[in-house]
């Protein structure tokens, strides 16, 4: 994608949560194995809107590997090395996505970060760590100061409640209120002060149902906008983990997680908010709203105008 002066504008990244899906990142517009109904629908909506906005489909230049939402989806060091190897051999830049971490998994993540730091130095290539936990941010900044840090969408707070978000942009709402629901707190002067001495190279956003206020002036670093699933809520209680256990042991973090979230998903259909415009899905410990063509188009158009924009497309509901 380029502007009239030929300056490259939009970068394109594909988010992949499993090694088995790496091979689909080259042509993310093509049908993939074991794609479910909503993922197929969203693929069509995303690339359809892309063509409307840009007129051509661009090849992705980066793979974002890993789960932003569940510590029990933390890959092994071996899997991370495999993903990194795949990326660099196939000409992709590499980002590693991390979730929030309780102490036990935090220590496992530390081992992965050490390996990535070593690889980065050995190959003299940049590696991005996408953080969704301020503890992970602080630890990475302190221990591995040469790794690039991107502030993930779980640390970029906003209201993403599909039951009511479409009302937040109504014409009769107070302007200050509307602006609040579209803006991020990460670009305040005080937040910049907080992030001041870290190697922060970007910020990630969900495309909000009420719209995002993404200002070119404020966005000095990469702005990554996620499609086609926005995160509404994430937590420690997994809906399918421990499915075979006694009731008393269910709905909490499982160190021996059998990854049932990769087998089963729930669609949440609301009985009260009948005017909801976006579908809601619960995968494992997280709830997501799916985009529609209009929302995708809105997001791509906002990125189109930005010097540092990056569209992030997830092949699957991203857990």
């Amino acid at each position: 994608m380029s502007n009239a002066e030929g300056v490259s504008l939009l970068k394109f990244a594909v988010a992949v949560q499993s090694v088995r899906d790496l091979k689909f990142a080259k042509e993310p517009w093509a049908p993939i194995d074991l794609q479910n109904e909503i993922e197929t629908e969203m693929q069509s909506a995303f690339f359809g809107a892309w063509k409307e906005v840009f007129g051509e489909v661009a090849a992705p230049s980066r793979i974002i590997f890993g789960s932003e939402f569940c510590q029990h989806r933390l890959p092994t060091v071996r899997a991370v090395n495999k993903a990194l190897d795949y990326c660099w051999k196939n000409g992709f830049e590499f980002s590693f996505a991390t979730s929030y971490m309780h102490e036990e998994k935090f220590q496992e993540l530390a081992d992965i970060l050490a390996v990535l730091d070593e690889q980065m130095k050995k190959h003299e290539k940049n590696i991005e760590i996408i953080v969704n936990d301020w503890g992970v941010y602080f630890y990475t900044k302190k221990r591995f100061p040469e790794l690039d840090l991107v502030i993930g969408r779980l640390l970029n707070k906003s209201i993403r409640d599909p039951r009511v978000a479409h009302y937040y942009n109504e014409s009769n709402a107070p302007e200050e209120g509307k602006e609040f629901f579209k803006k991020t707190g990460l670009f305040s002067q005080s937040f910049r002060q907080f992030l001041g001495n870290g190697r922060v190279t970007g910020f990630e956003f969900d495309q909000l149902i009420q719209g995002n206020f993404l200002s070119e002036e404020e966005a000095e670093q990469t702005i990554g906008l996620h499609f086609p699933f926005g995160c509404t809520a994430s937590g420690s209680a997994c809906m399918v983990g421990f499915i075979d256990m006694d009731k008393a042991d269910k709905f909490r973090g499982d160190p021996e997680c059998k990854q049932q979230c990769q087998r089963y998903v729930f669609e949440l259909k609301n009985k009260r908010h009948l005017d909801m415009r976006n579908r809601v899905f619960q995968k494992g410990n997280s709830a997501f709203y799916s985009h529609d063509s209009g929302l995708v188009r809105m997001g791509l158009e906002s990125l189109q105008a930005m010097k540092n924009g990056r569209a992030v497309y997830s092949l699957r509901i991203p857990v």
Binding site: L34, N36, R160, D161, S234, V265
Partner: peptide, 30 residues
């Protein structure tokens, strides 16, 4: 959910409140 990562508003009632939802199971794959 984890309070920090729940991006909803209680002004519409708690998002997690189960009485408002039908949970429809599907295969994650295919």
């Amino acid at each position: 959910y984890e309070e920090s990562f729940c991006m909803t508003t209680h002004s519409a009632g708690a998002f997690c409140s189960q009485a408002q939802w039908n949970y429809v199971p599907q295969h994650a794959d295919g």
